[in-house]
Amino acid sequence: MNSFLLRQVARGVLPVAVLFAVYLLLRGHDAPGGGFVAGLVTSAAVILHALANVAPHKRRRRPRVLRSVWIGLLVAAGTGLVAVAAGKPFLTHSHFDIGSGHGALHLSTTLLFDVGVFLVVVGSTITALAAFAEEEPR
């Protein structure tokens, strides 16, 4: 796919899409979004970029994103284990408020769990897509 327009669009879309994904991830607990959707947005943008801007023969290099799958699984399971260490059931989430009132910053382990989901989705989606994008069809 060698198109000037696509190349430029893909190049521009990637950072915006990643930013948007982070936004979706952060707001997920209170508004539409979350780790799964954010992961899909990121994967779609990365794949678009790869298809448009990376020459097919270079795509053959094995993507290292599989690592993010493991890290994601560990992060998600780890947030659950934190609760166990505190004597609560597995995957019990804890919440903290920094400050008070309207401007309070709300933090919780649900976000960490969602980050785990995000990493797994990104890793496995890109791995699967890259398997088929690695070379030109015959």
Binding site: G28, H29, D30, A31, P32, G33, G34, G35, F36, A76, A77, G80, F90, L91, H93, H95, H106, S108, T110, F113, D114, V117
Partner: peptide, 19 residues
């Protein structure tokens, strides 16, 4: 402590399923 019930179900109520 979440207003988006879909996400709350995914990460909290049914977190084990998601895992």
């Amino acid at each position: 402590k979440g207003r988006n019930v879909v996400n709350v179900i995914l990460v909290d109520f049914r977190g084990a399923d998601t895992l």
